[in-house]
Design a protein around this nucleic acid. Sequence first.
DNA 1: TTGTATCTACTTTTT
DNA 2: GTAGATACAA
Length: 811
Amino acid sequence: MSSFDDSDAFEAAARPSLSARAMAARPATYLDGLNPAQREAVETLNGPVLMLAGAGTGKTKALTARIAHLLTTGTARPNEILAVTFTNKAAREMKTRVGTLLGEAVEGLPWLGTFHSICVKLLRRHAELVGINGVTGPNGASDAVIETATGPTTHLKSNFTILDTDDQIRLLKQLIVAAGIDEKRWPARQLAGVIDGWKNRAWTPDAVPEAEANAFDRRGVELYAAYQQRLVTLNAVDFGDLLLHTVSIFQNHDDVLDQYRRWFRYILVDEYQDTNVAQYLWLRLLAGGHHNICCVGDDDQSIYGWRGAEVGNILRFEKDFPGAHVVRLEQNYRSTEHILAAASGVIAGNKGRLGKTLWTAAKGGEKVRLIGHWDGEEEARWIGDEIEAMQTGTRGMDPKTLNQMAILVRASHQMRAFEDRFLTIGLPYRVIGGPRFYERLEIRDAMAYFRLAVSLDDDLAFERIVNTPKRGLGDKAQQKIQMAARQNGVSLYEGARILLEAKGLTGKGAKELARLCDGLQRWHAITLTGSRSHIELAEIVLDESGYTEHWQNDKTPEAPGRLENLKELVKALENFDNLQGFLEHVSLIMDNESEDAEAKVSIMTLHAAKGLEFPAVFLPGWEDGLFPSQRSMDESGLKGLEEERRLAYVGITRAEEVCTISFAANRRVYGQWQSQLPSRFVDELPEDHVTVLTPPGLYGGGYGAAAPQADTFEERVAKADVYNSPGWKRMQSRGANYQTRQPSEAKNIVIDAEAVSAFAQGDRVFHQKFGYGIVMGIEGDKLDIEFDKAGSKKVVARFLVAAAQADDVPF
DNA sequence: TTGTATCTACTTTTT
DNA sequence: GTAGATACAA
């Protein structure tokens, strides 16, 4: 995995290994099986090309064939091709597919990646042009050859750190407080969103238009400027900066731009409908000379408007690049006739489309299935049962493996219902797009230690770990350190040293802080002398800092997993020569796409599902307010609704054979029950292509059935206040970033006394946390219930259910 | 300084 | 139903 070597990829241009080998490959291999439209898109090599590719029309196939064609015909060398995708996954897939097309020649194509990963590479070379750089050579050049302690010379590049959303918010919060602004009126989260929006439009603080600035009270812009200033001091950039800075460099330094225009002779862009203004400018600048740009997109699949994506970019392609060759891919190879028709029916409700008519040669197949449920939990239950049934074949359909099925939700909080249910019945599932590996608490902590070891003045990292694990350094002590640092104009680490020197701290805190500082100094020395390998160093840091021990002593259920992750982190170091190299790239490689062998149902958001396909797809939660999302409609009106509709279109078109749409009449929102109306998109489905299923339902009728009697014992149990019952423990950790409360293993569930008398031995009960159980016995006001244990269907866990005092239970 | 209970405000979607 | 903020006890 040493392909992340940041060595100058351009220099490799002299080495034509891949193209040489590719030349030898038979052209027929990659042109085979392409339809005329795809072939046209592949073979029109020069000048601007816009590929309007509908869902499932083989656009990735065409795109990869185009790359193969460029290489095979000797039109471009691997490093002269700039191919941009939106996700790492898409980039990886494209790389693999090009490799397959051209034999095993996958090395090369150094400039195939996401906008972000490419910008990181570019920015590492030119960061000094935007004033960001911790490593400066004689002439202020980041590439400078520098004398270091390790040897005569070392080739260094800018070592800025990339902040993630958490860091960003933490920083903004500090600035808001420092500016004496009310945190309630200017929540850091919101400000981060506003600034992000500005960056997506490639506005630097001084370039934010008046009207926009005024809309945010001007303070927004002031804070933005202060934030950028702070980032420079910290030698850091955030996600938005990666693009913003790169665009600024291209705009203000013609020589640099010209160089890249010469280098990148062919540009390919996937998912062009999702480019935002900054990305658009970036592309237009780079393609400015030769116009050899090929964009692929589908205006009907534009679902990132909230992130600044402009469908307008695709609509105006022909204006931006006169003489553009437009190719439409309209033959769908993925879905059945009914599924395609249903999707087309829904998307037809949108105005202002480029308009494509997808068609398929495949006839027949399953109609789209529609089903209404009583509530969200029943929906999850039904889908769970249906998935189990589908494995052996149900309703006349072929059996499907779990890997062939997916549940696509609008908002990630919808996932929990499914996870809960699947745990209860022991159905293997995988959540795609959860917190990424490097976003996890323990990884971020460990990384902060590593960052500090590499450079002692990384204040953000210092702040993060001074008191993790607990060192008796609370708010007061940390303020003192900050003060000492600010007064002397030094880093927090130096500040801490000064504070200790001046005996500004006493007792345990002082001792621990001194130990930490000594440790940091020691580790830093190792990075300089290289007396230990970076892997050993990482282990030393984690051990000596007490961080590993901290998790070993932790008794929460996650602790073992976190220790595992730490081990994995250290293992990942093997792919790098030193810590610096690792730190530069970790955020790009640590994608937690572990390919596990076990068959599992996938659960993901509709956004995460773009580009994927599954034989069977479930689309739950089609209720107005949830989908289309109320917020989207409130904020963006018709435009928002249309984007939601495109999302519906994306969802349906993920399905190859079976698509099941469902909604519930009642759903818990913020812990409160709310009745829901079916989504307006449900009524937009063309009836001829839909079958309505009847749910078996505990209440016997699904949506529209009479409401059940309130307070059945099941409900009483479900309402039990689990967190306040004996045997449940709440856990909290103080700290800027996390606070968790977790129940230990339950012994007792408290329900109200009246409910206890409603139980009889042998009753089948249902509890929202534990799932199904059976009442084994009743002693006075105590019930003995055996719950089906999560993860297997065997009944193992046994709980005592005690009646609460009348005033214990807030009904 | 740390641990715990209680109040409050919030949940789209992501590189 | 959750996580962060806050208040207060240990």
